[in-house]
Write a protein that binds this DNA or RNA. Sequence first.
DNA 1: TTCTTGTCACCTAGGTGTTAATAT
DNA 2: ATATTAACACCTAGGTGACAAGAA
Lengths: 236, 236
Amino acid sequence: SVQLEMKALWDEFNQLGTEMIVTKAGRRMFPTFQVKIFGMDPMADYMLLMDFVPVDDKRYRQLPGLRLRVPSPPGRYAFHSSSWLVAGKADPATPGRVHYHPDSPAKGAQWMKQIVSFDKLKLTNNLLDDNGHIILNSMHRYQPRFHVVYVDPRKDSEKYAEENFKTFVFEETRFTAVTAYQNHRITQLKIASNPFAKGFRDCDPEDWPRNHRPGALPLMSAFARSRNPVSSPAHQ
Amino acid sequence: SVQLEMKALWDEFNQLGTEMIVTKAGRRMFPTFQVKIFGMDPMADYMLLMDFVPVDDKRYRQLPGLRLRVPSPPGRYAFHSSSWLVAGKADPATPGRVHYHPDSPAKGAQWMKQIVSFDKLKLTNNLLDDNGHIILNSMHRYQPRFHVVYVDPRKDSEKYAEENFKTFVFEETRFTAVTAYQNHRITQLKIASNPFAKGFRDCDPEDWPRNHRPGALPLMSAFARSRNPVSSPAHQ
DNA sequence: TTCTTGTCACCTAGGTGTTAATAT
DNA sequence: ATATTAACACCTAGGTGACAAGAA
């Protein structure tokens, strides 16, 4: 079985409608997809991998007209609303790439003794990418999937491919691929929770998350409330 | 068979008497021990590891009296000569630790397809170190060794331990463990060749090594002359 | 108008020798 | 006197969103 790490943070993003930046060079996901794994054979070899499947066959676009223009510090504007409209049918599917965890293959004991982190995984919108990154269509919604493959030592292992394969889906990790953030509250939550975006925080840097009082920052409520975020069981 | 990478640089250091810093927290080696590997079974599993053996049973100390005092930029002094004296018998041996390359175990094909770099290996003088670093005595000389272990799939693999084991020694990688550099020319060569020490260079940063003319900097002659340094065969 | 691209300042994370203070 | 330690400025390497300019 598999538990999603940082579930509270994923939930908070999911509630707003998670967005993930895609760039030509490749961009990491935030939150990072991380799991705890249980019940492997400690001595057996496993491959761990991820892929991304379209949630629907739609293309999205930003709600026109009702856009916000919020100058908070002078020169800073939020141009985007938080609503999505269906813009039509999905663009042609991107190459269905897969990301193997770089430690693969490894023994079950190795995978289980610590959190497995997919922090090397990068998303791109470049259809010609040759860095092995995951290729996605911007303005489309995706569901990350996590797969565990048991490396069957038997000679005719191909015959057992079905039973040596297990897939885990966490619906709270769904997101919309974008080239620039559309929902300003997503931007703010990324800035508040991603250490690499600390330069864009304007609140007291020491105040969060260590000394954060529940309810003080509505954006972070759920995540801040649980200091040891409870993992969630996978769907299926 | 195994080829040492950056052999020309190793030779240059070795000619001056290589020194490696040891610290309580652990310090990387420079140059980094890197090898190219040939002739593995691409489908078989191998473990790669290093250890360090004393070159002799002596303790060294710096030559007293004839010390240099060279003020180059105001306030900068070089207190140390380049000569070593035997100070007596070696201190009690340190725990004989081993460093497994973090990618171990992996297939022969994996190891052979790119340079294998031991850049995660760190040296410490802390006898109580619990970070798994290599523990060495300061002011003692050491010989790095590189070992390849074939992971025998047979049930009684212990019986074949001898033949599944191969050791490679490059004498040009010998060094003296120190807590502070003793030979000022070693310091200068480290500054000139280690990118992380770029802040201490006073020559034109663009001038080396890209546009370096042979013979211009005596310290770097051998390394600078060979842009694609030839690897050296291992002794034994 | 909407979306994408490239550059940038500002971070995290961690590897350098220097230096002054402290052991031994 | 010699050897070790810890704090430090200055790097490498690379992950952020902001922003202005460009493309569709």
